[in-house]
């Protein structure tokens, strides 16, 4: 009887963990959509950073994204309240970093980027000091500029 009870407790804790992981996605996404303000939703990314055993640092996740010239994009990142620190987002063109939400030792909530060349860029997400956690990022369209307006 005791063994069955222990087994059930184990099943419960596993299923509770997976349910909270699902909530992490959904509630964060809703919050990110709210925080992007009046801008127009384009795409979202679910970020789940896990540390491999014996690793001192978490890895990072990388996504490719096509951005169009003369468009002003907003990159909203919402962290799970349980994260030990905030996720760092960086936008790269090849190996050149264009923007980051971590500048001068502080995190900016949602930086904007005015794109002037249509092509494939790369977005990366990571923790500074090798922790685990999840976050949700949304790319939204703030403004489209006319030619010569910039």
């Amino acid at each position: 009887m005791k063994k069955v009870l222990l087994g059930l407790i184990l099943v419960l804790s596993i299923s509770s963990f997976s349910a909270s992981a699902q909530q992490c996605d959904e509630s964060l996404k809703k919050q990110a959509l709210k925080e992007m303000g009046d801008s127009q939703y384009i795409k979202d990314f679910s970020i789940d950073l896990r540390k491999a055993k014996k690793d001192m640092k978490t890895g990072f996740v990388k996504f490719s994204v096509i951005l169009h010239s003369r468009n002003q994009y907003r990159f909203t990142v919402v962290n799970h309240p349980g994260n030990p620190e905030e996720v760092v987002m960086q936008l790269f063109d090849g190996d050149r970093m264009l923007i980051s939400n971590f500048e001068g030792g502080k995190i900016t909530k949602a930086p904007d980027f005015v794109c002037r060349t249509t092509k494939v860029y790369h977005l990366t997400f990571s923790f500074r000091s090798g922790e685990e956690g999840c976050a949700e990022a949304v790319i939204s369209l703030v403004k489209q500029y006319a030619e010569g307006e910039l």
């Binding site: 010239s69 002003q72 907003r74 063109d93 264009l98 923007i99 500048e103 900016t108 949602a110 930086p111 904007d112 980027f113 005015v114 794109c115 002037r116 060349t117 249509t118 910039l150």
Partner: peptide, 11 residues
């Protein structure tokens, strides 16, 4: 209060 970065590469 929003940081806006304007790309330096223009196509």
């Amino acid at each position: 209060g929003t940081l806006i970065v304007i790309q330096d590469e223009i196509s």
